[in-house]
């Protein structure tokens, strides 16, 4: 996936989790939990949606890599297992 495709996917998913959030204003290296006031339930739902939409397995241990926009982009730009 390209960076733009990944960011569009993230925006779509987060729009469903935190409708009042505007991810266009979130810096790439900002922690999404702080920037968008997301809790562990939100992050779990976010990871579950990323898994559903990309069909890529996401082990729980990888969750810390998925809490910034840059982290998500890097994760999905590398070839999955």
């Amino acid at each position: 996936m390209t960076r733009d495709e990944i960011l569009a996917l993230v925006a779509d998913i987060l729009g469903g989790i935190a409708p009042e959030a505007d991810i266009a204003t979130v810096p790439g290296d900002a922690d999404l939990r702080d920037a968008l006031d997301l809790d562990s339930m939100d992050i779990l739902n976010f990871v579950a949606a990323l898994h559903e939409r990309t069909r890529r397995p996401i082990p729980e241990a990888d969750t810390p890599r998925l809490v910034t926009l840059n982290g998500v982009v890097a994760y999905f730009q590398t070839a999955g297992p």
Binding site: S40, M41, L44, V47, A48, L50, H51, E52, P57, I58, P59, E60, A61
Partner: peptide, 17 residues
């Protein structure tokens, strides 16, 4: 919990809470 979640997809995982 981590052992349990390792065998589950994200939507089936449990939170510590």
């Amino acid at each position: 919990l981590e052992r349990l979640n390792a065998g589950r997809g994200p939507s089936q995982r449990l939170l510590p809470a």
